[in-house]
């Protein structure tokens, strides 16, 4: 057992966990942040994507200890109170989800994509960059639409700041 200290969604967290604990299990089982999903558990599907120090990573393939000292953001940490994050709002408005299982990972990956590309995003880039996230319902079309819509909203929001 080891004590892992990290920041999750802006709050300092300390958890006493087995060294073999994966970050996704720390989040779901110890912190009750069950918005982060486990899909394939083999780092293929991307349902477990969270941000570690701003980078979208697959939390099923990171030991909790590796995230010690890091700043972790999960799907629960991106809205502003009742106000959805622009990426969440765009997914809702563009019907970017059906069953919703992949959605938390899609949204965390998509935010990272917009952060990296800003206003220079086009459809090809979005499709290419989403290759680490698998959706079995939507056929991706509305997900891509959502990301492009959100990229516009996020750059407007950034310009207003």
């Amino acid at each position: 057992m080891s004590t892992v200290n990290l920041t999750v969604n802006g709050k300092p967290v300390s958890a006493n966990v087995e060294d073999r604990t994966l970050l996704v299990n720390l989040l779901r089982d110890h912190l009750n942040l069950t918005g982060t999903h486990v899909g394939c558990d083999t780092s293929q599907c991307g349902a477990c994507v969270v941000h570690i120090d701003g980078q979208a990573v697959k939390s099923c393939t990171v030991l909790a200890g590796q995230a010690s000292g890091a700043n972790v953001t999960t799907i629960e940490g991106i809205s502003n109170g009742d106000e959805l994050h622009p990426m969440q709002a765009a997914f809702r408005d563009n019907h970017g989800l059906q069953c919703g299982y992949c959605t938390p990972g899609m949204i965390m990956s998509a935010i990272d994509i917009v952060n990296r590309y800003g206003g220079k995003l086009d459809e090809d880039t979005v499709r290419h960059e989403l290759e680490g996230n698998i959706c079995r319902c939507t056929g991706y079309h509305n997900i891509v639409k959502s990301v492009l819509d959100a990229a516009g909203r996020m750059s407007v929001a950034q310009a207003a700041e």
């Binding site: 780092s43 991307g46 980078q55 979208a56 393939t61 680490g132």
Partner: peptide, 9 residues
């Protein structure tokens, strides 16, 4: 190589 999430790690 891999996908964006893998390339971060």
């Amino acid at each position: 190589l891999g996908d964006p999430q893998v390339r971060y790690r």
